[in-house]
Design a protein around this nucleic acid. Sequence first.
DNA 1: GTGAAAGCGCTAACAT
DNA 2: ATGTTAGCGCTTTCAC
Lengths: 393, 393
Amino acid sequence: MIRCIKCEQVHAITKSGVVHGRQRYYCKDCRIYFSLPESDPSPSPSHTGPHHSATILDIARALNISKSTVSRALQGHKDIKEETRAAVLEMASRLDYQPNLLAKSLVRSKTFTIGIIVPEFMNYFFPTVIIGAQEIASAAGYTVMICQSQESVATEIANTRALLASRVDGVLISMTRETEDFDHFRVFGRHGIPVVFFNRVCETIESSRVYVNDYEGAFSAVEHLIEKGYRRIAHLGGPPNLQLSQNRLNGYSDALKRHGLPLQPELIVRYDLQPENARLCAARLLDLPQRPDAIFCLNDPAAIQALLLAKERGINVPGDLGLVGFSDDPISSIIDPHLTTVRQPVGDMGKIAMQILLEQVEKGIGNYVPEHKTLPTHLVVRESSSGPTGHPR
Amino acid sequence: MIRCIKCEQVHAITKSGVVHGRQRYYCKDCRIYFSLPESDPSPSPSHTGPHHSATILDIARALNISKSTVSRALQGHKDIKEETRAAVLEMASRLDYQPNLLAKSLVRSKTFTIGIIVPEFMNYFFPTVIIGAQEIASAAGYTVMICQSQESVATEIANTRALLASRVDGVLISMTRETEDFDHFRVFGRHGIPVVFFNRVCETIESSRVYVNDYEGAFSAVEHLIEKGYRRIAHLGGPPNLQLSQNRLNGYSDALKRHGLPLQPELIVRYDLQPENARLCAARLLDLPQRPDAIFCLNDPAAIQALLLAKERGINVPGDLGLVGFSDDPISSIIDPHLTTVRQPVGDMGKIAMQILLEQVEKGIGNYVPEHKTLPTHLVVRESSSGPTGHPR
DNA sequence: GTGAAAGCGCTAACAT
DNA sequence: ATGTTAGCGCTTTCAC
C-alpha cells in the first residue's frame, strides 16, 4: 500500500521502474515520480493535493466494481442491477463527480455542441436570433458556442478553425459584411459538418439557408412611402456583397418602377453597416442639391442615424422627410417620431435555422437535401412615414 | 499470433488501428499495412463511411514517420529538422488536417476555454461586457463559451454543470435576479476552477469580484436631482437579493439624508428587472396621491419605461418629473428627452474581469488571493433632469 | 449483470 | 532529431 508523497493517496500509484536498486513510483494525480523514503510512517490523511476531479475510475474503486459498470450505471443502461446503480449514483454525488465531456465526446465523436458565427451582437438583431436558436438547441440537449467575427473576415476564418477544432456537430453562420471569398466555409462540408446560413447567407456554397423575403419587404416599404405621397425616395443601402442588400435594393427599384417613378442613381447610396457611415451616407443624401423627400433604409440602425441627423438639422420627419427602416428594432418604437419599419420574425429565424440544422446533424451529412426557407416580412406603419407636409392622403 | 502477409514473420507486427471495424496490422520489416483476410464480404470498400477527419497518425503514415514527430512538428517544437517540419505542414494542409482540441485538452487537462454566465443579452449591458471580455481572452489564446441563464436559477445551475463538464479553465459570472442560494457556484472551487463575479456579484463566495461603485453613482445621481431643484425624489429600485440594488438604494437614501430630505418609504419601489414590471412600478409611483417630482431608476431600461409612461400620460419630463437612469445605454441619448444617467465603464468591466480571471487561471487555484475591483462611475447630465418647471437654478 | 480490454486523437516522458 | 510507450477519461464490443 504505497501512498503518494504529495497527495497522500493510494489509488493513483503505479510502479515505474527501479532506480539505484530502489523501486520508483508514479502518482497519476500529482504526475510526479518518487521513491519511498527509507522508513517513514507517513500519516496525515488530509486532503491537500491538487484538485483532482473524480472520474468513473474513482467511483469504481470506491465501490470495488469495474469502470464499465460505473459507466453503464451512469448512462442509465438497462441491464444494471438497481442497487448497483443506486450505489454508483450515490457515490458519484459523494465524490462530486462531474462527467468529463471531452473524453465522452472524443470517444463518441459527437460533442452535442453547435457553433454559431455572427458578425456582432451589439444590435438587437443577432442576440435575438441567438436566443431563439439557443432555445431550440438546449431543448434538444445541445449547447451552443457563440463566436463573433466582429465583421472581420480574418476573425471569421479564425472562428471557423476554432469551431472545427472543437468538433462542433453543426454550424449556424451569418457572414461578415466584407466576406467575399467563401473557401473557409467549405471546410465544414469536407469534414461532414452541416452548416446553415441565416440572414446574411452565402449563395455559392451548397447548404441550407434561412432568410426573410427581403425583396417583398423592401417593395412594400417603398410602395407605402409612395402611397403616402412621397415622390423623391432615396435608398440608404448596404454592401453589394450581401445578398440581402441586393434584394432590398431590387425591391426598392421595382416599387419605384411599378409606380412610374424614375430610378435616380444619385438617390442610391450604400453604407458598410458601420453606424458612423450610415450617418455619413445619410448626410450625403440630405446634402443633395435636390433633397429626397423620403429614405428607405437598409435597416433600423441606419434609419435611426438618418433620423437623428435630420432632427439635428431641423428637418422635420415625417413632414419634410419620410423614413422607413427594416427589422423592427425596439428602439424604433421608442425614438421620436416612432419609426416605420419592416418587421422580420427575428427570433423565429434563429429557431428555424437551428431546427433545420439539428435535423441535418441527426441525419448525417449526405442524407439530407439543403433547405432554403424564406420567412415573411410585415410592414409596421408608425409616424416617421405619415406623409409629406401638404400631401395628406 | 499474427503473421505478416508478406514475410510471414511474427516479430515485427504491431496493431495499427481499426478500419471499417477490422483490426489493421503493420509489419515493421516490410513496412506494409494489412488486415487479416476474413471470410466476411465487407460491403463497401470505398470511402463512403462517415467523413473521417485526418489525424496526426494519417500524416505520420503518409510521411512514414512517427506520430510524435508529427505532433512535435505541428507544435513548433524546436528540435525537429526543418525539412521534416515543412513536409509535415505540407501534408497537414494537403489532408485538410484540423487538430482535435478534444483530444489535446483531454491529455493536457487544459481547454483554453473560459465560460461566461450572464442572465441575458438583450440589453446593451451584457453584450458589451462580453465583447470586452472576449477581446482580452482571444488575445491570450482563449476562447469563450457564453451561457445565458435567462434570469432563471434552474438554467443557471444547468449552465454551471455544462461548463464544468466542458472543463473550462475559468468562469465569469453575473448571477440571475433570483439567485439566492449559491451552492451551485461552489462546485467550481471544489474542482479548482477560478471564478470571477462581475456586476451582479456574490458576496458569500470567496472569489474575485468586479463591479462599479454603485453607492457613489447613486449618490451623485440623487444629489444632482436635488441640486436641480427636485424635492420629492422616488427610487425605482431592483431586487433585494442583488447587492447592487442595495448599494444603489443606500446611495439614494444617504443623498437624501445629507441634504435634509425625508426618506419616504412609499417613494421606494422595487422591480424584478423585467421591463413590463418596471413600467408597472413606475405607474405605482406616478399614481401616488402626492406624485414624486423625480425618479432615480436602478438602470436605464427602467428609466426608459418610466419615461415612456410619463410621456403617454402627458407628464412633462423634466418639467413635471426629473429622471435619472444608470448605465448609459445608447438608447438614453436617442430617446427624447435625452436621459441623464450614471455611466459605468461597461466594456472595461468585461476586460478587467477577464484579465483577473486569466491571471488566476495561469497561477492555478490556491496560488492567488481573490481581488475585488471597484470601477468608477460618472454622471452624464442630459435633458431629463434639467429641473422642475419654475425652479431654474 | 459485470468485467477486461481496446481505442477515440493527442501529448510527453523516456529511450535511442 | 526521431521513435516508443503510456496514458488523459470515457464508451463499447466481447467475453463470462
